[in-house]
Amino acid sequence: TTIEWNGTKITVDNPQKAKELAKKIAKKLGLTVKVHGNTITIE
């Protein structure tokens, strides 16, 4: 699972952990999480 935001890509083996990490990042930055299959985008 890949997390993408602002040109940065982070690959996380565990999809559940990836989703939790994305939510934490999005919350800190005041952004939203969008899931597209194996890609999680923070916008």
Rank of each mutant, 00 (worst) to 15 (best):
T1F: 14
T1K: 07
T1H: 10
T2A: 05
I3N: 09
I3Y: 01
I3M: 03
E4S: 06
E4C: 11
W5K: 10
W5Y: 13
W5D: 07
W5V: 15
W5R: 10
N6K: 04
N6E: 14
G7H: 06
G7L: 03
G7C: 15
G7F: 05
G7V: 08
T8W: 12
K9G: 04
K9S: 14
K9W: 11
K9Y: 12
I10H: 02
I10E: 01
I10Q: 01
I10S: 00
I10V: 04
T11V: 15
T11E: 07
T11I: 15
T11H: 13
T11S: 08
T11L: 12
T11C: 15
T11F: 15
V12Y: 04
V12I: 13
V12T: 04
D13L: 13
D13A: 14
N14I: 04
N14C: 10
N14E: 03
P15Y: 12
P15S: 05
P15Q: 07
P15T: 05
Q16A: 11
Q16F: 10
Q16M: 10
K17C: 15
K17Q: 12
K17G: 04
K17W: 12
K17Y: 12
K17E: 09
K17F: 11
K17H: 10
A18C: 06
A18S: 02
A18F: 03
A18H: 01
A18M: 03
A18I: 05
K19V: 14
K19W: 13
K19R: 13
K19C: 15
K19I: 15
E20R: 12
E20P: 01
E20V: 10
E20S: 11
E20F: 06
L21N: 01
L21P: 00
L21Y: 06
L21T: 02
L21R: 02
L21K: 02
L21G: 01
L21C: 13
A22Y: 02
A22F: 03
A22S: 02
K23D: 14
K23Y: 09
K23L: 12
K23E: 15
K23Q: 13
K23S: 11
K24D: 06
K24P: 00
K24Q: 10
K24H: 09
K24Y: 11
I25T: 01
A26K: 09
A26H: 07
A26D: 02
A26I: 05
A26P: 01
K27S: 10
K27W: 02
K28P: 02
L29Y: 14
L29C: 15
L29G: 08
L29I: 06
L29D: 04
G30H: 07
G30V: 01
L31Y: 05
L31H: 08
L31Q: 05
T32P: 05
T32E: 09
T32C: 13
T32Q: 11
T32N: 09
V33Q: 01
V33E: 01
V33K: 00
V33D: 01
K34G: 03
K34H: 13
K34S: 12
V35D: 03
V35T: 06
V35G: 02
H36V: 14
H36M: 12
H36R: 11
H36N: 14
H36I: 12
G37A: 05
G37L: 05
N38A: 07
T39G: 03
T39H: 09
T39I: 13
T39E: 06
T39M: 09
T39N: 07
I40R: 00
I40P: 00
I40W: 01
I40Q: 00
I40C: 01
I40L: 06
T41Y: 15
T41C: 08
T41H: 08
T41A: 04
I42F: 12
E43N: 08
E43P: 05
E43V: 14
E43F: 12
